[in-house]
Write a protein that binds this DNA or RNA. Structure first.
Lengths: 337, 337
DNA sequence: TACAGCTATGGAACCGTTTCCGATACCGTT
DNA sequence: AACGGTATCGGAAACGGTTCCATAGCTGTA
């Protein structure tokens, strides 16, 4: 099966390559009869333009990249997928680059700038620890999705996220108001300037406001996977069995914790309440269903590409804060008397 | 920030573009001193070659594509991710194309053949209904992952899957041996020549062998998502409340069904047993944990790219059958007396 | 009739890289 | 001294599109 080039089509249709190119790009300055003839030929030989050739010539061709670290976090993967979908409805083409745990987003972005001529980036669920200076190296517009990047005041940098601090506070408040006092927090590292650090600060604030001492020794650092969360919970509870509630910073972590509690003979929420974060679909079906903070996933996706596209057209960077919602379900209840 | 081309580097290093290209491609015929000089210049200007230009010139450049339909099926998405990872360890570059529910894999493959010069394809979780003739149009090697494509005897077509029929039979046998007689099957359409049809046939065989009549009216067609499965179960049980077991053809479906049963006041496995399929990680943590058929996800991924690469090097197409494992957990028990 | 203005089309340069084909210099042999 | 062989390098032609610029034909108006 021969692969036809634009030159083949031109020859077969008896026109110049320029004309074929015009037809291909739906330009107005082509005679209707000519257009139809060219289109017929293209259909006959299953012609599809070569993407490399096109993008080689069109250096200004709008290309944007999504940079996602790891595939483990369902919430973030889905977010990226949604962005891809929304982006598909616009003119610019988006490419998704999945990098592994230890890769550097900024290096990746730099590489994509050259390799694929990417002119705009969305970092999904990135971290910010001390990389602001590297950022200056890139002059392409950046959007941080689900990352609180407000404080880094850089010209072409935007962010789209919920108010993680407020939501972390709300989660903790909810547990405190339910009557809990000995509350464990299962989160990630607190020093990387990301959403998790914010949620942590929010949780602390809630304790301080309520006059409940925040117990650092009940902060458990875990990676966001079922097995890690499960393992962390199995290690934690035998020595801290008086804990009556857990604030897990991701629904996946919450589920791992719940399973661990069950395996240790405790029931949720009767013995221990578990509060999640993110609002993934599974949370509704899990037994018990998860009380959680639901992030507006679709809105975050839509807004992120909107803001990036705007910046790529010369707009200013904005920091968008979207509302999240507390969803009360089965996994949180009052502690036992 | 200027984007340097190979010509810029050549000028700065005082050599020809040819030499720079040679350094770039680690060819041996470059003097060590020259190589070092060029490399220093490249490092200084953060040079990264333009991918479009490279692939435009290298028409023989080995590119393969993964075609995945939908993002909803966690098992298949993970499978694709793993393939990408294994592919990364080889020379050829793989690109992942996610298409939506209604798109045609073969049209997509055809397009990628032209647009991106893809020379080999892996269809993950595809269907085969009557498309064999379109297949002949593509002359690139094809691998069907998790699809029983044995019967289509085409020269450059391979498949990697478990023995779905046998596993469907095993699942059903397991339920029958546990004492169940009124068993519902939650699957997809049975007429698309895919893995689901095979599992269905296997389930029927098990019934026939055991002398238990297979009740077609207990076959429930559902899409493989939590919400669809949940809805289907809510619609099914009120009229078929005597059903004591469910064979769900995907773990996600199993979870949706379990939640629905719980919401209807039934407990699993005491009132109804639920059997899953795939062996996703969540199945281990769900409450109750899922009795299921675990597909060797990593092996399927690894073998698929291996077979494709082999075919792209001129090898023959093979049909690989991998062993799956029955995992007994909590969601299946004997029926109530 | 002459000329401006518009439509439809083609020629050819160009995008950044790879690669074929030579060219040069230097080595050891005879 | 002549020569074959090797190591190292450069020139220039691709690859398949897009686009600037030129041109030819046609229309309407002064």
């Amino acid at each position: 099966m021969k692969i036809y080039t634009i030159r083949d089509v031109a020859k077969l249709a008896g026109v110049s390559v320029t004309t074929v190119s015009r037809v291909l790009n739906h330009r107005p300055d082509v005679n209707a009869a000519t257009r139809e003839k060219v289109e017929r030929v293209m259909a006959e030989c299953n012609f599809v333009g070569n993407a490399s050739a096109r993008s080689l010539k069109q250096l200004d061709g709008d290309v944007a990249a999504l940079i996602l670290r790891g595939r483990s976090n369902i919430f973030l993967s889905q977010l990226a997928e949604m962005m891809l979908q929304f982006a598909g409805e616009t003119g610019v083409s988006f490419l998704l680059e999945t990098i592994d745990e230890k890769a550097d987003e900024f290096q990746t972005a730099l590489r994509l700038t050259h390799e694929k001529r990417a002119r705009g980036f969305i970092f999904v669920g990135s971290r910010l620890d001390g990389r602001a200076q590297v950022l200056r190296g890139l002059e392409a517009p950046l959007v941080f999705a689900t990352v609180p990047a407000r404080e880094l005041e850089l010209p072409r940098v935007a962010s789209v996220a919920v108010d993680d601090r407020r939501m972390g506070r709300l989660a903790m408040e909810t547990l405190i108001q339910a009557g809990h006092r000995r509350i464990a927090v299962f989160g990630g590292r607190r020093d990387q300037g990301d959403a998790l650090a914010e949620r942590y600060l929010g949780a602390r604030e809630a304790c301080e406001t309520a006059g409940v001492p925040f117990d650092e020794s009940r902060y458990v650092e875990t990676r966001f996977s079922l097995s890690d969360a499960y393992g962390a919970a199995r290690a934690f509870f035998p020595t801290r069995g008086d804990t009556t509630a857990v604030f897990a910073m991701s629904d996946l972590v919450a589920m791992g914790v719940i399973r661990a509690l069950k395996d240790m003979g405790k029931s949720v929420p009767e013995d221990v309440s578990v509060f999640g974060f993110d609002g993934i679909e599974m949370g509704k079906y899990f037994l018990p269903s998860l009380t959680t903070i639901a992030q507006p996933q679709e809105e975050i996706a839509r807004k992120s590409v909107e803001v990036l596209l705007d910046m790529m057209n010369g707009g200013e960077g904005r920091h968008v804060t979207l509302p999240a919602a507390l969803i009360r379900r089965e996994s949180v209840a009052a502690p036992r008397k």
